[in-house]
Design a protein around this nucleic acid. Structure first.
Lengths: 115, 115
DNA sequence: ATAAAACTACGACGATCCTCGTACAATGGA
DNA sequence: TCCATTGTACGAGGATCGTCGTAGTTTTAT
């Protein structure tokens, strides 16, 4: 097989990331859950390792929204698509934002008794 | 005039505020601008003191979204409706979130040259 | 070559969202 | 009382969003 261009995923550069876009990306329950799981892991994870209450196409959609808004980066490895949070970029652009969102989500989950 | 019940505004209690709702409320450019202006002032401000690029009805809408998601509190004084950020509640629920959003917005405005 | 695994592209549906204009309500001052 | 100020309620239009199923692509293993 020749290399497939569609397998190279487009990411916004650091300068293109907007705080409104990041907040919007994180404001959906499914996507917030994805980011929490990604941030809790030590390395990148495949989309298939997420147990989400939505269909597979919807899962694809949510990962794309996160990527297009600069929250995660993704790349292919075999048939799998791996994701990780763009911690370095987000911390540089919006210091403390990611941590406080994740911390706030943790507190809320604790408070609602379903951490 | 007798007291009008419609003039008493409904606010979510602290326990009802959700991080997803707060993020959603802050993810709109107009609303983020409102909150930045509110946070930059020392006391509460009337809606009419905001110079926004939308109509008056749309302004009302955005203030309501902010209030219903627990970001601001509002009360009437005469014909004016005053607003202020629910700093104490937000800091208790999601420590550091408000500050990092505001700080990130400031940095972004600086970076884009229209602070 | 065949099949399985992982993910995507596309179109569709209903819900929500942002916006507006118009008409209305509440307050305070002349 | 009359009017100006301030904000609301309502309905509407158009855009975006979240969801899905189906069909298809890419890769790896057999």
């Amino acid at each position: 097989m020749t290399t497939n261009a569609a397998r190279v995923l487009a990411h916004p550069s650091r300068e293109e990331i907007r705080v409104e876009g990041v907040l919007h990306a994180l404001s959906d329950p499914v996507r917030l859950r994805i980011v929490r799981q990604l941030a809790g892991a030590t390395d990148e994870q495949a989309c298939s390792r997420f147990d989400l209450p939505v269909s597979k196409s919807t899962t694809t959609h949510h990962f794309r929204v996160l990527r297009e808004n600069g929250v995660i980066s993704q790349f292919y490895r075999g048939t799998a698509k791996l994701s990780c949070v763009r911690t370095e970029d987000l911390d540089a652009l919006f210091p403390g934002l990611l941590d406080s969102v994740l911390g706030g989500a943790d507190l809320q989950a604790e408070r609602l008794g379903q951490g």
